[in-house]
Amino acid sequence: MKPITRIHSRTAVLADENIDTDRIIPARFLTTTTREGLGKLCFHDWRYQADGSDNPAFPLNQPQAQGCSIVVAGRNFGCGSSREHAPWALLDYGVRAVLCSEIADIFRGNALKNGLLAIVIDELEHRWLLKHPGIELVIDVRGQFIALPDGGRIPFRLEPFARHCLLNGVDQLGYLLQHTDAITHYEQQEKAA
């Protein structure tokens, strides 16, 4: 994974609460055996009309949302299944960060492991961002704040290890493998018990 220190983009808003992973990528597309190319399927049943054309009512289809890589989403984004296809699809679609007052646990973990910034912010600021789509933000991972155009800052807190991995492009499996001796020791003790 490449290090991620900051993301600079205008915001697009998906105001619905409880946007579940079936909405992010419907289950019928999970027959894939790779993680690539899922962007075209992202939000499929919301984003396209029956004839395959873009649904103008889908917020991210609107002209002002084009090129936005920061999505401000309604509370409890990513609830539902554990499918990592959800962050894979979002990233491939061009989303780099999701800001929300609450993000479902499994989705948040999956997202951060793939370099998708799933960031929890305070309710008050979340409400304000939901009401002001298209605002230019800079997400600073090192400083753990979001810079607003007027110079204001929205602080956030990432789990320290997730932040360390994002900033340094740390491969978490590589990190886990460094603990092989401790794991072997644990297994030996367990066997002896």
């Binding site: 554990s82 493998l177 603990h179 092989t180 297994e187």
Partner: peptide, 20 residues
């Protein structure tokens, strides 16, 4: 508990997970 596919790989290789 449920895990994502990256973590499935972690468990396959190390039988462990990084968890808070």
């Amino acid at each position: 508990f449920g895990i994502g596919t990256t973590e499935v790989g972690h468990v396959m290789a190390t039988q462990c997970l990084l968890q808070r």
